[in-house]
Design a protein around this nucleic acid. Sequence first.
DNA 1: TGTTATATTCGGTATATGCCGAATATGTCA
DNA 2: TGACATATTCGGCATATACCGAATATAACA
Lengths: 147, 147
Amino acid sequence: MAASEARFIEDIARLLLPWGVPSTAARLYGYLLLSAEPADLDRIARDLEIGKSSASVAARLLEKYMLVRRLGVRGSKRVLYEVSDNYVDMLAEQNRLLQALADVLRAGTRVTRSRATRDRLAEMADFYLVVRQGMDATFDRWRAKKR
Amino acid sequence: MAASEARFIEDIARLLLPWGVPSTAARLYGYLLLSAEPADLDRIARDLEIGKSSASVAARLLEKYMLVRRLGVRGSKRVLYEVSDNYVDMLAEQNRLLQALADVLRAGTRVTRSRATRDRLAEMADFYLVVRQGMDATFDRWRAKKR
DNA sequence: TGTTATATTCGGTATATGCCGAATATGTCA
DNA sequence: TGACATATTCGGCATATACCGAATATAACA
């Protein structure tokens, strides 16, 4: 693997790490971003210098996050992985967290007896809701443009 | 502490956990969201049933994340903590991650020789950039409305 | 400068997590 | 159904992290 590729992979991994993505899975994502064709577990394990079992676990983790897609190979048990093309849905998933946060905050307004606290929670709930809606709108515009 | 308050605190903590915020710090944030006045470390440790040193560490962690503000008490070494009112900046901080991601992807287009890969990386870079810009615009609108 | 109040650091322990290679399960084909 | 190819699970080990109470540092003030 070329040095510039290794560098890219590490850069991507560094960005994913703070989101709680384990190091192996993060590097795998960078690897798949660069891969021109879908990759099988043996190639992944060899190129990334990790155990095959680790490659398997990492790949399925990324699949759960919807960052990669799993492809079955016809007439074989072999499995290939490629980066998912619906990176939009991936961020949209994050968006649900904002909605959940807004919901909890809104519910919190019914917990306290302090007027100031209640107002603060309501304001924050509004904010997170507005941000979520704004992101959804951006997603829609993007999808429309791409179609 | 009332059961409904404890419930709220746990709900908030559950939402923060996946972002890598440690359990104690996450609960502390929920606690401070409900607190009508700024809280000192002894009260925090008592109400949350944690060691005072843990309270200190958790509070400073939240401060680093800009989720809470630290207040000095005049004529005393005592420190108080309250939730930060600039929840906007807090999300804006997250936004820098999107920008970084876009940058790395853009740089990646210069790493590969495959046309398809290059196009994919460029498209993703565009997307993350557009999303970041959209969020910044939302933030600006919110700030304008609140002023 | 000494005493007190308070926050912070430190060392130890328990817990969780990631990774590995070996063992196992499962799909494919003759 | 047997043999092979391949993915997955399992058990163990190493590493990181959170939390605690005790020890220490630091600010305030007499």
